[in-house]
Each structure stands twice: as C-alpha cells, then as structure tokens.
Computed example of a mutant assay.
Amino acid sequence: MGLTDRLSNATKGGRPPDSASAGGSLIGATVRRRKDAIADSSRRLKVKVHNKLFETIDVSKLETFEPAMVSSKVTAAINDILNEDGRLLTDADRGRLVEELKNELLGLGPLEPLLRDDEITDILVNGHNQVYVEKRGKLHATDVVFQDDAHLMLIIDRIVSRVGRRVDESSPMVDARLPDGSRINAIIPPLALDGPALSIRRFGKHRFDIGALVERDALTWDLVEFLLAVVRARLNVIVCGGTGSGKTTMLNCLSAFVPEDERIVTIEDSAELSLQQPHVVRLETRPSNLEGRGEVTQRDLVKNCLRMRPDRIVVGEVRGAEVFDMLQAMSTGHDGSIATIHANSP
C-alpha cells in the first residue's frame, strides 16, 4: 500500500494494517490491565489493613486523647500492620496508604486532601465516582473517588453526626458544618436519583475584611464610609445577592462596624458567621428527631431572641416565615439589625 492509499484510507476513517500500531495497542491494553490489577491489589490491602486497624484500636476512646497523640497512635498501629501485610510496598506507596487510612479513620476520607487546599472554595460530590471543585471561580473535575455509595454515606454520616444531625430515608436532606466553619449540604436517595450528593462551601482561614474588599475593587473607600455611617446610625440592612456572591462576607464586614458595647444575637441554620465583637450570642436551628419532634426553626429563634435583650439581631439568611418576625423586630426597638437574602438585586 502506497503513501496515497494510506492517507486515503486514514481520511475515510480506516486504519492501515500496521504491525507497529497493532503492537502499540496491545502494549497499551497490557499497561492498562496492569494498572487496574495494581489498583485492585492496593484496594484489597487497604480494606485488609482497615479491618485489622479496628481490631487493634478502640476507636470510641480516641476522642479522649489529644489530636496529636491520636494521630501518632493511629500511624504506629497502621505501620505495625503493614510490617506484616505490606512488606512489598515501596516507601512512597506505604506513605500514601498510611495517609489514606488515617483520613478514613480520623477525617473525611478521600476529601481530606481537598480540604487542605486553601484555594478550593467549593467541593461538589455528585456521586461516589464524580467530584468537582471550584477554584478561583472555575469548576474543575478531580480524580477523587469513593469506593461506592456506602463509603460516601459513611463520610456524610460522620459529618452530620458530629453536629447532632442525621440523614436517612425519612430525612434525606441535611445542612451541617465542619469544625472549620465550612457549610455542608447533603441529599441522599430517594431524592437524589443517582446516589448520595454532598456539597461543601468552604471559607478561607483568613476572612476578608472591609480593607481587603477595597483592595480587590469590590468597594470604594467612599462606599465604606457610607456603610460605616449606615451601621453606626442603626439603620436596618438587608444584604442580597445570588449564590456565592459574597453575602456572608459582606455581612461579616458590616458587623465589624457595630460598637463593642452592644449586644448582638446571631441566628443561623448552619453557623458560619464570624463576628469579632466581644458580646455575641450565637443561635442555631435544630431539625426534628426520629419521631418528627423537637424541631427549632429560625422563626422560633427570632421570637426567642427578642427576650434576650439584643441591641442588634443578625440573621444569616432570611428565607421563610421568620421574615415577618425579623421585620417586626426591626420596627420595634431593634434598629440596626442585619440579615441576608437570596435575590439577584435589591
């Protein structure tokens, strides 16, 4: 077959009989099978060590120790098991496996590396085998995966149980938070058709202050002076915007203008505000229990906080019946209160 025939054949979608090409495909398939075999072997070893770890360590007692001591104890136990079952591992593979197992036992499993990346603002788990992150306003696919839906559910249960919440078929949606203040939303079947889904809205270690917003051209100093006057004059403020537009950031910045001798009561579904004043009382809603009782809504908390002698009331997000009580509070002696709402414009 001449060069012209080869080009013609390629243009038509055919492939010339090329022993090198066939050989390359064979090699590629062999490499893929070898990689799959190594990955499968690694998973089996990880499960084996994980099971032995639970036989070696009383997990229920770990919380009684300091975090550093817990990490040290778990690392030592994993290495003892690997000295028997993982002798053929390279140092790099061994180190990676130790880290993964520690994350499974003490943290949030495959999500831990993402939570340590300060550039990530959102972690979006669309199922056990699809995880996206948002960095600098852009979504990126990751290679992070869970073993299966049960593994993902285990991580979700771990998150919500730490803040006294639950998620199951009778209550398939839940809002919660991580110790660092990150906001969590989880939704599971039957509402989530393709398996459990988890969304994590993260907040940076260094919160933006009003000066940082000016540096990033989000505000001007003239506008800052106006906002300072608004807060000090005890005018009521509603911060509105779409998802991820910076409502909570703006609310935190505005709250910095509140005089330190005033008493502030904050009300949230999932606590994420970070007020710097010394006199702040933080309230958080509570879902119903397994019997469907015991729910405490934002409206309940707004009504209750009126009896707590607040100078100002700050509601993290007004989105239901509590708006009536909030407006009444703003009109009956609690001037200078602040709230946020979801809206594209004032």
Rank of each mutant, 00 (worst) to 15 (best):
E284Y: 01
V280N: 01
F257H: 07
A176R: 09
W221I: 15
D269Q: 09
A256R: 02
K247D: 11
E262P: 02
R234V: 11
L275F: 03
F257Y: 06
V237H: 01
Q276L: 12
N185I: 01
G204D: 10
D194Y: 15
R177H: 13
K205Y: 03
S255N: 01
A233F: 13
L193H: 09
I200W: 07
R232P: 08
L275C: 04
L219Q: 08
R183P: 13
V160N: 01
K205C: 07
R183N: 06
A271L: 04
S270P: 00
G181R: 04
L219G: 06
R263T: 13
H206L: 13
F257I: 08
L273N: 01
V281P: 02
G246E: 05
I188G: 02
L235N: 14
P190I: 11
I200H: 03
V239M: 03
A229T: 12
T249P: 01
A192K: 06
V237T: 12
S274E: 13
A218G: 14
V167L: 03
L223R: 15
P196L: 05
L198Q: 12
N185D: 12
F226R: 14
I210A: 03
P196D: 09
P259W: 01
R183T: 00
G164Y: 14
S182I: 05
R162N: 12
R162I: 05
A256P: 00
T266M: 08
A233P: 02
N252R: 04
D168Y: 07
M250Y: 04
G242C: 04
F203P: 00
H206W: 08
V174H: 02
G244W: 08
A233M: 11
R166G: 00
L275N: 00
G164K: 04
D269Y: 03
R162E: 10
R216Q: 14
G242P: 05
R207F: 13
I200T: 01
G241S: 08
E260C: 10
A256M: 09
A229K: 15
I187K: 03
Q276F: 06
S199C: 14
A186S: 06
R263M: 08
G244R: 14
E262T: 03
C253V: 15
L235P: 06
L251F: 02
H206Y: 10
V214P: 10
E272N: 07
R234D: 11
R216T: 04
P179G: 07
A256C: 07
V280G: 12
E169C: 02
S161F: 05
F226M: 12
N185G: 10
T248P: 11
T249Q: 09
R263L: 02
I264F: 05
L228Y: 15
L251Q: 08
L254H: 05
V167K: 03
V214G: 04
D180M: 03
T243I: 14
A186V: 12
T220R: 12
P179S: 05
N236V: 09
D175F: 08
N185S: 15
P278L: 05
I267N: 01
K205A: 14
C240D: 02
L223V: 15
R282F: 02
L283R: 13
R183F: 07
I267T: 06
Q277M: 09
D168F: 11
L254C: 07
H206N: 14
T249F: 10
L283M: 14
L228D: 12
V214I: 10
R166H: 08
L213C: 02
A176P: 08
F203I: 06
L228M: 14
